[in-house]
Design a binder for these strands. Structure first.
Lengths: 295, 295
DNA sequence: CATCGGCTATGCATTTTTGTATGACTGAAC
DNA sequence: GTTCAGTCATACAAAAATGCATAGCCGATG
């Protein structure tokens, strides 16, 4: 087995897979379409495999190509991580660190924390990746992640921040107009804001919060940010972080019936422990989140 | 942040890191020394970092370069995995699968299993990686691993094979000449074969097997294979798999005092579940190992 | 049905990368 | 001290990859 496949070819291959066409990949990669085309041909020859079925409206990836995608993405992640760790040379805190968090945390909680951190270390650059999908730190999609789950991998360095409490909230204006529900049954007469497609996380909670079911929602949104915005604008009653509700002057509703504790963890690959930029960011996130929880 | 670092540069960089010199890397990569040198220079410029301090006796990697090594290795693993999964296209079972196992398992147990498997699927190619270090399947150092530990990662598909029992053994000739020890104390008068540097695994067992300590060993070898060979040639008394001892006509000694159960698992990345070549190999390994355990 | 915007494929000139050959240096061995 | 095997750096020619321009094809749109 000849190991002589140029790595550039994989990069072009991934580009085509992502963009769906030679031209698109060329644009994304900053090279020209004929070059990308030649790369793909070269890769197919090197591997002895058909990767795409050509059509003039684009390229259709074969099964083989699809199966290779995950590894190609991982390879790209590694390349990016490599570039990041290279930016970490000086003794000082500098370079790029990539932080992953949920949308709500990333939009509502992290900005002030990161702003302060940047003020302290102006040479530090931060990439914020917001996604509710659990990022894979081992594959280096991010350097540091804020998660609601205790990490399981031994190679991960984790610190428990505490518990974020979720509860039902509404804007005072809404409650003034529609009344404050006193029992769970009262909710039926209210505009309840909830999810549309249940995520894995919601399914896991599942039955634990009864009477909070898709069919009962008057307003459905999969984006947690959208739900939060709806609550804030008095559209109805929905779940959000208690700390956020308090901060924004929202009123909590039925606190005894609806309360959810989310364990919060900050996680980092243990190899990065001795990287100043990661270490510093890790600590700043921990401190900032604890402050947020304290309210 | 320009993402325009050619991936080839990383490959040459890793080559230099591995080989310790431009010339060595060039040989390993099948290109010439000036090219590797230029690649390194290009990478240093692209990243704005000094990766090596030049000397005419070789290149000395900087801290930065060393910190980047792990990611570079991971990237290389991904490239290799990519090439392997490409070889998996046909409907039939073909292509390369990389199996990792301990030295003893790999030398003493797997060969017949793999031979039979290859007879059944001639288009299947197998790379056997023997190492007592726990291979990292998530980083794709291997497709399938035989391990003595229950895997912890959720992304790994694992099957428990059973328990491998270790016990003290000696060749009948040795025992005929030196007598069969009847008590643990008797061992002091015997040639006991053991480890030199305790591995993490041995340290973990630690005190569980008393009277089996480095200082008491007459023959020390870190290679399990060497220990096994010594036992087989009547050099003394040592630990080995009971199944192997039985197969080779070794006699077990002090079975009640020295018995160790090792859980055995076969592990695979879950993404590979639908890869015929991996699936088939996984099953063959499971079956073969169970047969081995049954004796 | 003609047009337009998207795509791929190909020929050709140019740029870039690579290899070859060589020189200069180091450290170990004799 | 000299030789030898190893290293890196550099100059120049050869090879290869790239970009440009263009042709051809498809599908949507008016």
């Amino acid at each position: 087995m000849t190991e002589q496949v140029a790595w550039e070819l994989y990069r072009s291959f991934l580009g085509v897979l992502r963009e769906g066409s030679l031209s698109g990949a060329a644009r994304a990669l900053g090279i020209t379409q004929p070059t990308v085309g030649r790369h793909v041909v070269a890769l197919e020859q090197a591997l002895g495999v058909t990767l795409f079925t050509r059509s003039q409206t684009g390229l259709l990836p074969t099964e083989t190509a699809l199966a290779m995608r995950a590894d190609a993405e991982a390879m790209a992640n590694m390349a990016a991580a490599l570039a990041r760790s290279a930016s970490d040379h000086g003794n000082g805190v500098s370079g790029v660190v990539r932080v992953s968090a949920s949308e709500v945390i990333g939009v509502e909680v992290l900005p002030p924390v990161l702003a302060r951190l940047r003020e302290q270390y102006p040479a530090l650059q931060i990439e914020l990746v917001l996604s509710n999908r659990v990022q894979d730190l081992l594959q280096r999609e991010a350097d540091i992640a804020v998660r609601m789950l205790r990490p399981e991998q031994a190679q991960l360095l984790a610190r428990r921040i505490g518990e974020i409490e979720l509860g039902l909230h509404a804007h005072p204006v809404y409650l003034a107009r529609h009344g404050v529900p006193q029992t769970v049954a009262d909710l039926a007469a209210h505009a309840v804001i909830g999810y549309d497609q249940p995520t894995a996380f919601i399914r896991k909670l599942g039955k634990s919060v009864q009477a909070f079911d898709r069919d009962t929602f008057a307003l459905r949104a999969d984006s947690d940010l959208a739900q939060l915005a709806l609550i804030r604008h008095g559209a109805g009653i929905g779940m959000c972080q208690v700390a956020l509700g308090r901060r924004d002057g929202l009123q909590r509703v039925l606190p005894q019936a609806f309360s959810l504790q989310l364990e919060t963890w900050i996680t980092m690959h243990e190899d990065l422990r001795h990287s100043p930029r990661c270490r510093v960011t890790f600590d700043a996130l921990a401190e900032g989140l604890m402050l947020h929880l304290a309210g």
